[in-house]
Amino acid sequence: MSRVTKMVFCILMMAALVTTGFGKAELTADIEGEDINLSDHGAFIKDDGVPFVPVRIIGEKLGAYVHWEQDEQKVYIYPEDKGRFIELELEAAEFIINGETQAMSSSSQLRNNRIQVPLHFINDALEARASWDGNKVSIAQGGEQNPKVEMDTLDEEFEASEDIAFKIKNRGNTELTFARIFKVEYFHEEQNSWEEVELELAWIQDMVMLKPGENHIQKINPEDFAQETKTGSYRILKEVRCFETDQEFLLTEEFQLN
C-alpha cells in the first residue's frame, strides 16, 4: 500500500469514527423498568460531568404530554395527573411551572434535533426520581429516596506548588447540602496515624446545594497549610448532608504530595 493510499485510508477511518461516535461512551437509561439508549436521542455528558438528557422521550415515558412550539422555541409539558404546566425555552437556564420561574444549573441545549436538559430537571419539573451512576441513568415515578455521593481528587499526585482540586458528585436522586469547609489530614508513617493539618483559610459562610447529577469542585493549595509542608500521604475529609432522608455522609479521599 502506497503512502498516499495509507493516508487516504486513515482519513476515511477517522471520519467514520467521528460520524459513528465510535469510542464514545453511550448514555443509557432505565425508565420505569424500560431500557433506552439515551445517546440515540442526543443525550450527553458535559465537560463538567453533568449529564444532559432528552426531555421529550423521558417526559412521554413518564406519562406527560410534550409539545414543541417552533415559533416560540419553547417546550410545553403537561405531566399526567399532577396539575402542572411546564414551560421550557431553548437555551434558557430556567423553566416555569404554573407561572413560577425556577433556575436550572445549565441552559437547555439542542442535540440531535432534540431538547436536552440537566438531569435534575427531571426531579424538579417532572417530580420523578432520577439518578445516575457512570453511564447509566435510572428514572422512576415516585420511588425511594436514594442519596448517593462520591468525592475524588482530579489527580492522585500533586506537587507542593500546585492546587489540589477535588470534586463532590451527586450520584443519587435527592438534593445534597454542604458547607464549603473541609479538613485535611497528614499520615504519619512512624505513628501509623492521621493528624489534622491546620489551614490558613477564610471560609465563605454559605451552603452549597447540589442537585442530582451535579458536581462541585473545590481547591486547596499546600501554601494554605499553617505548618511546613511535608511530602507524603494526605487526605481530604468533607461532610455532606441529605435533608430529605436526614442522612449525613463523611467523604474521604487520599492524595500524594511530592
Rank of each mutant, 00 (worst) to 15 (best):
E72V: 05
N98L: 06
E127N: 07
G172F: 14
T174L: 10
Q145T: 11
F178A: 02
Q70H: 12
D155G: 04
E91G: 00
A103P: 00
R171H: 08
F95R: 07
L126Y: 10
G172H: 13
Q70V: 08
N113A: 12
A165M: 13
V149H: 03
E159D: 14
D152M: 13
P118H: 03
G83M: 08
P147C: 06
I115W: 02
E80R: 06
L126S: 08
G143A: 07
L126I: 04
G143F: 06
V137A: 03
R111K: 09
L90F: 05
R84M: 12
K82Y: 04
F178T: 06
G99F: 12
L126E: 09
R114Q: 14
Y76C: 02
L110C: 01
R114S: 10
H120A: 03
A128S: 11
R111S: 06
E100I: 10
I122S: 04
E100H: 08
Y76M: 12
S106P: 00
K82H: 06
W132M: 09
L110K: 03
I139F: 06
V137N: 03
F85M: 10
A140C: 08
A93N: 13
S107P: 00
E69G: 01
N123V: 03
R114L: 06
L119C: 09
W132F: 15
I77H: 05
M151N: 12
F178L: 05
S105K: 08
N98T: 10
E175P: 00
E159P: 00
K148E: 12
Y78G: 03
E127D: 15
G143N: 11
M104G: 01
T177E: 11
E127S: 11
A165S: 14
E144C: 05
G143C: 07
S107F: 01
I96R: 14
H120M: 01
I122H: 09
L119S: 03
T153K: 13
R114M: 05
R180M: 08
A179C: 01
A165F: 15
I139A: 04
Q102E: 14
M151P: 04
P118T: 04
